[in-house]
């Protein structure tokens, strides 16, 4: 193992973590503030990727398409909240899961009807499509650096919004003491509408950031949603800081596991056993991490209440 390989795997892990953070941030906000389980978050991530892909192709300009796409994701968030989620917030978790699962099925099928089952092309600006040399022997894709930058920027913005604004204060209070916040005369419904739409836009942004890397297809949100929930639970439900730390942790553990677990096992238990156990272990590592964290801190790393 060379230093260059290790540095590049570290970068890969951080970058995966940042994408997971973008997905998990909106999820943890909604989950935390309203105690609302939104399985349809993955669908909003998928819609973000589709909106940006279509609008960039239509406008011929990446920045314009991205901006319009994010606005579209925001609007869709409002619409979904008013049509569906508003009616589920005061019900129990099972009904929320059923309701939002229904949204997944309907929206996925609508997207399939409009765009077909085949994956969609995602136009990436040529300047961001290649790779740059960071240090001798280490070429790194430009787009992954863009994702790192955007993710850290969003984290900073969220930190400011949550810790330094009135809205953020209500979000923090709502995530730990919702009844008190409500009793103090805060319109929890409106707070939820704003938080939800903002969360939908974050999911859309994550989809747009992932678009150049992954296949843009109707079911693209399903897989990432599971990992995003793992991130939220490890970080502590409702905590943005927790989501950020936990996303980076999950990204690093997953990437370094895939990169080095097989080699480490080879040294420990021999080549043939490692060939079978390595891939199995690396795909389990994230869930092992969750189990360990929850056994030590049942409410997650930064959680105010238990999951």
């Amino acid at each position: 193992m060379t230093a260059v390989l290790f540095v590049s795997q570290l970068l890969n892990g951080l970058q995966l973590g940042v994408i997971l953070f973008l997905v998990a941030a909106g999820l943890t906000l909604v989950f935390g503030v309203m105690d609302f389980i939104n399985l349809a978050h993955g669908v909003q991530y998928m819609l973000g990727a589709y909106l940006v892909a279509v609008l960039v192709a239509w406008s011929g300009n990446f920045a314009v398409g991205l901006l319009l796409g994010l606005l579209g994701a925001l609007v869709l968030g409002f619409v979904l909240e008013v049509l569906v989620f508003r009616h589920l917030t005061r019900r129990d978790h099972l009904e929320q899961v059923l309701g939002t699962f229904g949204v997944i099925l309907i929206v996925t099928e609508l997207v399939r009807i409009v765009f077909g089952s085949a994956p969609l092309a995602f136009p990436t600006p040529a300047a961001l499509a290649g790779s740059v040399t960071l240090m001798p022997g280490l070429n790194y894709p430009v787009w992954r650096l863009v994702i790192l930058g955007v993710g850290v920027g969003v984290a900073a913005l969220l930190w400011y919004l949550v810790n330094r604004t009135r809205l953020g204060m209500l979000v923090r209070a709502g995530s730990t003491h919702p009844e008190t916040v409500s009793a103090l005369g805060v319109d929890i419904d409106r707070l939820f509408l704003v938080v939800f739409a903002f969360g939908a836009m974050l999911a859309g942004l994550a989809g747009a950031m992932a678009g150049p890397l992954v296949s843009v297809e109707p079911t693209m949100g399903d897989r990432i949603l599971i990992v995003a929930f793992v991130v939220v639970v490890i970080g502590g439900i409702g905590s943005i800081k927790g989501a950020f730390v936990s996303a980076l942790l999950v990204g690093l553990v997953d990437t370094l596991g895939r990169a080095f677990a097989a080699d480490l096992l080879k040294a420990l238990i021999g080549k043939s056993a490692a060939a079978a156990a390595g891939p199995a272990l690396s795909s389990m590592l994230v869930y092992l991490l969750m189990a360990v964290v929850l056994s030590v801190r049942p409410s997650g790393l930064f959680g105010g209440r238990t999951a």
Partner: peptide, 20 residues
């Protein structure tokens, strides 16, 4: 021989190995 997860999204770790 690299075995990945079924449905894997991110191949950065594997691609870095291949490049190396």
């Amino acid at each position: 021989e690299i075995f990945t997860q079924l449905g894997q999204l991110d191949f950065s770790a594997e691609l870095a190995k291949i490049a190396a």
